[in-house]
Every structure is written in C-alpha cells, then in structure tokens.
Amino acid sequence: MKRFDYFLPQSLEEALELKKKIPNSRFIAGGTDLMVQIRGGELKPSALISLRSIPDLSSIEINGSIRIGAMTTVTDLIYNPDLEHQAKLLVDAARRVGSPQIRNVATVGGNLCNCSPCADLALSLLVLEAKARIQSLSGTQDVPLQKFFESPGKSCLSPDQILTDIFIEPVSSNTKSVFLKKGRVKMDLAVASVALLLEMEGEICRKARVAAGSVAPVPLRLQKVEVLLEGQALSPELADLAQRMASESVAPISDIRGTEEYRRQIVGVYVKRGLAQILGWGLV
C-alpha cells in the first residue's frame, strides 16, 4: 500500500481548503470502500482528508423534514427511533448493509459518493426522493438524488465539493414501502435489489416509486413501472405486468456476482413480491 498523508480538518472550510491545496487528495468518510480500493492498488491518493471531525456532519435532525448528516453511520440510522418511524425504508435498507462492523463505520455519504450501482441506501433514498446538499467554497446547492449518480464510481460532485447532508420529506401516513435484496449469501453486495414505495388511496395507487440496484451503471429509478402503477387499482395481474416491465427496463451486466439474465429475473420477481408484500397479498 502506497503511503499517504492524513488530515483531520475541524471545519468544512478547512476540509475544502485542504482539498484544493493538495493535488490527488481524497476525502474519506467511513473508508469501507475507499480503503479497499487503496489496499487493492486501484487508488493511490497522496493524502486522505477525513470528514470525521467536522461538527454537524454526523447528526440526524427531524423537524418536519428530515436532515441526515453525510457522516452519519449506518448503525446510527438503524438505532434512531424517529427515523424508524418516519423513513422506515431507509432503516430497512440500512439493516442490509454489510456486517455490524462495517455498519459501525460506513456512512450515508460514503454509500452515496461511492456511486456503486448496488448501494443499498441509495435505492431507498431514491424512492424517498431525497435531496443531496453539496457544499463548495463558493456556496451551497441542493441536488435531487436522482441526478447525483453519473456512472459507476462517479457522482456529480466536482473535486472541490463535499456532500454534507441528505434531506427527505416525510411520507404520508398511507404510504408503505419495502426493501428487497438478493445476495449470494445474506451478508453480501446486492446481486439485485429493489426498493418500492406506494402511496395508496383505497385500492388505487396514488404514487409509486421503484428503484433497483445492481441492474444498471447507477442505482436506477424504474420510472416506467411507476407510471404503470400510478392511478391504477393494483391487482395481481398488474403486478405480473410490473414484473415483466421491471425485468425489461433494466440494463444489467454479467459479472462474478450474477448473470444478466438472473438479475433481470430477480428484479422482476422482487417488484412483484414487493407489491404483494405491501398490499398484503401473501406470496404470489
């Protein structure tokens, strides 16, 4: 492993200044992805700038809308009782991230900035229509999460920007959600995964949000499926249609974790099962 310098700035400004000053430096959050890349020789940064000591980056505030600091650990998501209540989908996804040891250090911001198509938190935040707050020395901007991911490993952040917070609007009381993930074993990166959120009015689906992981270069909203479901009375027949559409609207690759064909299959089945689970149909 190449040697690198390590900085522990105490403020956002200091962090951004350091980043500007040191060529080939990287921000580090929990390090659960970054350090693997460094050890594997894929990344050779000259310096790591830790965001660990910056105040307010690792807090959760619920005050009408929900603010989650980018340095909040996955474990902190799981054990926040209010979050469990107001953004259950995020907590469900958090429970499926890595192992307890990884969850203790991995952060929300890291999970997003790593821009892996399989990121568990990204899927749930996509369907929760989260916004990412991005800060640079020149100011602050909010970006819908859907525009955050550009390609595997690449976010919309420029080198002089930091993801500081995630904002979620609370969901209405007739909203239900589900997170389904297929790994080769239970503790695994997703071979394929689905996050699904439905706002129901009686039989009618008022709003549907569907996202799938590990089936495209980025965590993917399945908007065609959403359109298919919205405004409709949900039936098993429609769920079958959604299954087919989900399978067809994704663009997975074959790799060591699974084949393209298998990923399409799982995404479809999980969309159908997600609907069944939310609507209490039992196993379809």
Binding site: R184, V185, K186, M187, L189, I256
Partner: peptide
C-alpha cells in the same frame, strides 16, 4: 451452495471474501 474459486486463464477472479462466499451464521 456457495463456494467456488472462479478462474480465467489460470487467474483467480474472486480472491477475497467479497466475491468468494462462505456461509456465515446467517446462513
């Protein structure tokens, strides 16, 4: 159910526990 070292022209493609899966207590 899970374990296999995958190779391509003699190279091991999954030389880590990220991609070589053994059962954990959850299995």
């Amino acid at each position: 159910l899970y374990e296999e070292l995958k190779t391509e022209k003699g190279r091991i493609l999954n030389p880590n526990f990220k991609d070589y899966k053994i059962p954990t207590i959850q299995e």
